[in-house]
Design a protein around this nucleic acid. Structure first.
Length: 309
DNA sequence: AAGACGAAAGTGGTTGA
DNA sequence: TCAACAACTTTCGTCTT
């Protein structure tokens, strides 16, 4: 069984080429130890379903029901072993009993700490799936986000910060890592937080966890815009071509990718004849018409120049 | 009348002393 | 901590279709 699984596992991370792959049976995933991307999920798919039950952790996660059930985690019935070394009838305990009670207390304390972390994680996981759902992300994004969040916990980065903010940041990071195009705006909206806060948490996590986050490109946004506007494939081609030329002309540097994408899409809409208003595109791209105009202007100026060469 | 254009002032975040 | 700064937005008047 183990061997069978191992045989199907890639040796290197397709993302960064690292060979440091971590098999995470708890979450039934293989994760790249270098960049944190989820390479393979649902490991136990290969085995019979009952395997999930031999490990409580596994049963809680992915395979069985919605992750939300994780929230019912609250066993809530914590008790405390008090410090009087007396038994029920009030008699003093014998030394060996005392020692036993001491050990019990110690473990009880430890378990309670563990509980607090688990509780945080449970809460976070429910936030994560809520946000992911609002964004219509594929499963892999949620999985990656969970890994990111877990790592944040491990590094003690959550304490003193809002769970939701961190969850939103984890989702945003996951989107970028999985090349799933969503703007910071959209993540903020989906999480009910301000763009500012999500952005701050995002930068914080990236910095503290030393993540490499692939920069988002105008081309990604353009594809999405064209699709959202229900334009023809031809329009997409033109938009992409425009962006390639723009980047070759060093027009994209320092500019917001969404603005560039919006401008390229606008140009495509004009060129293909299925004209869209600037307002329409601006709204979807989450930039203003003015920004589109500015990008569009520099684009036109420079591309005209090329045509005459 | 709607859309496109552009000038000018404003905004929020980063950077560097 | 504060001011300079770049990118982007807001606002508004004018031009074009």
């Amino acid at each position: 069984m183990e061997e069978e699984e191992l045989a199907s596992i890639p040796k290197r991370c397709p993302e960064c080429g690292s060979t440091k792959l971590i098999k995470d049976y708890e979450h039934a995933e293989i994760v790249c130890g270098n960049c944190g991307i989820v390479i393979k999920t649902n490991l136990e798919d290969r085995g019979p379903e009952w395997r999930a039950f031999d490990d409580e952790q596994k049963a809680k996660r992915t395979r069985v029901g919605a992750p939300l059930t994780y929230t019912i985690h609250d066993k809530g019935l914590t008790t405390i072993i008090d410090w009087h070394d007396k038994d029920v009838s009030g008699k003093k305990l014998k030394p060996d009993q005392k020692a036993q009670i001491y050990r019990l207390r110690k473990w009880h304390r430890r378990i309670r700490i563990f509980d607090a972390q688990e509780r945080n994680l449970a809460h976070a996981l429910s936030e994560l799936s809520k946000i992911a759902e609002a964004l219509n992300t594929p499963r892999s994004v949620l999985e990656t986000a969970a890994v990111v969040y877990r790592r944040a916990i491990k590094h003690g980065l959550i304490r003193g910060r809002s769970i939701r903010g961190m969850a939103a940041a984890a989702i945003y990071i996951a989107c970028r890592k999985c090349m799933f195009t969503r703007t910071l705006d959209e993540v903020a909206e989906a999480s009910g937080l301000s763009k500012k806060e999500v952005g701050r948490s995002y930068r914080f996590l990236v910095k503290e966890l030393d993540f490499y986050v692939p920069p988002s490109t105008p081309s990604q946004y353009a594809s999405r815009l064209v699709a959202q506007l229900a334009m023809q494939g031809e329009a997409e081609k033109i938009a992409q071509k425009t962006l390639v030329m723009a980047s070759q002309l060093r027009l994209t540097g320092g500019r917001g990718p969404t603005g560039m994408a919006a401008a390229a899409t606008y140009i495509a809409s004009v060129l293909t004849g299925e004209r869209k208003t600037q307002r329409e595109i601006a709204e979807l791209a989450r930039v203003t018409e003015v920004t589109i105009r500015n990008r569009y202007k520099s684009l036109i100026e420079n591309l005209m120049f090329i045509i005459y060469l």
